[in-house]
């Protein structure tokens, strides 16, 4: 009787165990709007690369970055010295 061939172990890559779930994490199903394009009219007559392309994306990101920057405090002008 022929010897039974040795069973080969399947080669399964070892995976690290996932971290535990965050405790008390309530479901988040936030709704998001596309940042661009805005309306079909906006796209009309223009090349899609202008409307949806990297130029528009760069403009949007620059605008957001500008909004995120803190505004310098507005100080009142110094009062003139009292007349002697």
């Amino acid at each position: 009787m022929p010897a039974e061939p040795e069973k080969q172990q399947p080669k399964i890559p070892r995976r690290r165990l996932p971290a535990k779930p965050k405790e008390n994490d309530s479901p988040d199903m936030t709704e998001y709007e596309p940042i661009f394009p805005v309306t079909p009219e906006e796209r009309k007559g223009q090349s899609p690369s202008h409307i949806w392309g990297p130029i528009r994306l760069a403009e949007q990101r620059a605008a957001r970055a500008k909004l995120a920057q803190p505004q310098p405090p507005t100080e009142p002008p110094p009062e003139p010295p009292p007349a002697t």
Binding site: P21, I35, W52, G53
Partner: peptide, 29 residues
């Protein structure tokens, strides 16, 4: 070709590595 983008999606994981599950609604792709 870049079509559109959604965000920012903010996720507070916590002080230690933790698994978080989220479902986000992308309106009007």
């Amino acid at each position: 070709e870049e079509i559109t983008t959604y965000g920012p999606l903010i996720v507070p994981f916590g002080h230690a590595p933790r698994t978080v599950i989220r479902a986000w609604y992308l309106r009007g792709v």
